[in-house]
Structure formats: structure tokens, C-alpha cells
Computed example of a mutant assay.
Amino acid sequence: MSTTLVTADELAAHLDDPHWRIFDCRHDLQDIGYGEKAYLKGHIPGALFLHLDRDLSGEKNGANGRHPLPGKEAFAAKMAACGVGPDTQVVAYDNEGSIFASRLWWMLRWVGHEKVAVLDGGVPCWRRAKREFETAVPTYPPAPFAVRAGALPYGADDVLERLDDPQFLILDARAPERFSGEEENLDPVGGHLPGAINRFYFDNLDDAGCFFKTAEELREEFDAVLKGRLPQNVIQQCGSGVTACHNLLAMEVAGLNGSRLYAGSWSEWCADPSRPIATGE
């Protein structure tokens, strides 16, 4: 069972394995049709496509952020329709440093499915290994996927209660300029949660921005940020609950298990003017 990362060789060895299911999660926040077009142009054999807005997010109401979670039952029904059963090994990939694949990884853990991993390196890794792509869209028989107890996200009130608790750490995965509030091109308000620390998700990757750093490198870097705090007391946050999953996955790779996602993240937080905000580094 793979629960964090798989290599291209590992995935290639299971392309014909009926107990494995592959999902293409490519996306562009500025061009929401990009991922599906790229998938149809060529994808890893056997992969199905999942769209961030349609499949990995729920309905927006103006106060719950840009990518609110869907209902658990609706997401479970989607997985069942894709042929994911309780014993299926799921592998997610994208072309964006694994940020969207990490969202699917976390969501499956959220509904109690532990057998899920991310293809380390994504599309660039698969291409670099000279592996084949295909254009055919596969179909699979439905499977009996059911919601089980899984990872618990935090809500805005949960985070608010912990803002001044020194045992907790809020880790913001956004780029430094968005964290500081100097630049904000996605949300109407710039800044960050008071007391949060910036850990740009891209820092989890190697110098080429492709593969995750080694577990040892990640452990050293996150230990320096946690400063002795328990991993279970880390609140993962970003703009809309997507790239925060990348930090959560990186901590799991490093053996720092149990941090929790603030699913609504900054886009939900800043929608309520009564919530405190901070700017600067």
C-alpha cells in the first residue's frame, strides 16, 4: 500500500493492475479549461480526469472560500462511479508540482481511504522517463466506495479559537508576496492569519521544481519551522485549501504525521471582515 508518493517505475508496473486507479488532476487557476484539454491531448494510460472545480470542490456561497469541500457523500459517489473501491490503490498526478494531485490525496484521506498516493514528479517525470501517453478515455465499472472515518479538517471557528495558543502553528502555503499582502491576485483582501508562518509549497520540491525533496531534507526543514510543536498541532492553510495539502503531504513524507487542513483557508477567512488579519512578513 502506498500512502504518500509513488515513482514512475512503480506506477508503470501497475498500469494493468485492476486494483489501481489513476487520476489526472491538471489545472490552471487562470484557465480552468486547461486541465481537461491537456488530458484529452494525452494522459497516462488508464487515467481518468478530475476537475478541481467540478469534482474536487463543492458549491460556493460567497462565504466558504474559492474551493469549498463538496459533501462527503457526493465525493464518495464520484469515486465509486470511477471504480474506486475500498481496496483500490489510487494514484493522483498533475503538471503543476503536485499541488492539485495533493488535493485529491487529502480528500480521499478525508473520507477514510488510506490507499492513495501522488506520482512524484507528475507529468514531467513520466515524460522524462519516456513513458507512453494515450488519448483514449477509459471507463470502469462502479465500485462499492463508502465514506469511513478519516482526516478531520478545521473550520474558521476552530482556527479562531487557536490563534493565540502557542502550542498551535498555522502554516501558510502561499507564495511570500501573497502571504505578506504585497500582491493578491486571487482574493479581494491581502494578508494572512495573525501568527501564521509562511512555508511556500514550492519549497517542498527539488531545485527543478519537479520531485519532492527527500524525507530527510523535508524533516529538517519542517522541524526548523515547527520549533518543537507537535505535528498534530499544525494547521495547514493557503488561499483556498489546495496548496496547503502539498505541505500536509510533505510533512507526511517527512514522517511528521497528523497535521490538519483548514479547508476554507484565506479565501474563506477574509470573506468575513470581523476576522483579524495581518500583513507583512
Rank of each mutant, 00 (worst) to 15 (best):
T3F: 08
T4M: 00
A8Y: 01
D9A: 14
L11S: 02
H14R: 09
D16A: 11
D17V: 02
D17M: 00
I22A: 05
D24N: 03
D24S: 02
D24L: 06
R26T: 06
H27A: 08
H27S: 00
D31V: 03
Y34M: 03
K37D: 08
L40T: 04
K41I: 01
H43F: 02
G46Y: 03
A47R: 05
L48F: 12
L52K: 09
L56V: 05
L56C: 10
S57G: 13
S57N: 12
G58K: 11
K60R: 15
K60A: 08
N61E: 13
N61T: 14
R66K: 04
P68G: 03
G71T: 09
E73L: 13
A74C: 06
A76G: 15
A77Y: 05
D87I: 05
D87T: 09
A92R: 06
A92I: 11
G97H: 05
S98W: 12
F100G: 13
M107W: 04
M107C: 01
L108W: 09
W110Q: 05
L119P: 02
D120H: 08
C125Y: 05
W126P: 15
W126N: 07
R128F: 12
R128H: 15
K130N: 13
T135P: 12
T139I: 09
P144H: 14
A146P: 14
V147T: 13
D158S: 07
R162C: 02
R162I: 03
L163R: 04
D165W: 02
Q167S: 08
Q167L: 09
A173M: 09
A173T: 11
R174F: 09
R174M: 06
S180Q: 12
G181S: 01
E182H: 11
N185C: 04
P188F: 10
G190Y: 05
G195W: 13
G195K: 04
R199A: 13
F200E: 10
N204R: 00
D207M: 10
A208N: 15
G209R: 12
F211R: 07
T214D: 00
E216G: 00
E221Q: 14
F222A: 04
L226R: 03
G228S: 08
R229C: 06
R229N: 03
L230G: 02
Q232N: 04
V234L: 11
H246S: 15
N247L: 06
L249F: 05
A250T: 00
A254C: 00
G255Q: 10
G255P: 04
G255F: 01
L261Y: 08
L261W: 04
Y262K: 12
A271F: 02
A271S: 15
P273S: 10
S274E: 15
S274K: 14
S274I: 06
R275P: 04
P276K: 14
P276M: 07
I277V: 13
A278S: 14
